[in-house]
Amino acid sequence: METRRIDHVVVVTPDAEGAAATFRRHFELAPSAPVVGSPALRIGGARIAFAHPADGSALAAILARSGEGMAEICLEVGSLPEAEASLRTAGIGFTVEAKGAARALAVDPGAAHGVRLTLIEGRAA
């Protein structure tokens, strides 16, 4: 698998706009295009997204269990079909999810050492 870069990390919070404002003020980061409707800030070639997750979602469960904090990392791969094949070959579970208009592979956190990890091909703003 060719994994190219960190596209974004997701901070779960009950107050997405407030959390984005906190990070903008503390770290002087510039706003970027939203990530799947969530406010986001740019740092280098990556983004930090602040998500108030929908009830019943995996991120909502993380917020309820652990409180505000970093909950997901999204990596860009060269080819999603190749990534899918690599995961299948390695016997790693995943689900196919929509990330905005694009497809994403959500890797089984058990295989990713407790990390909620999504893989995308190119930008999925």
Binding site: F27, L29, G44, A46
Partner: peptide, 13 residues
Amino acid sequence: MLSKIHHVGVVVR
């Protein structure tokens, strides 16, 4: 000035 994400730390067993 903060320039980029240097790393994301992951705890493993």
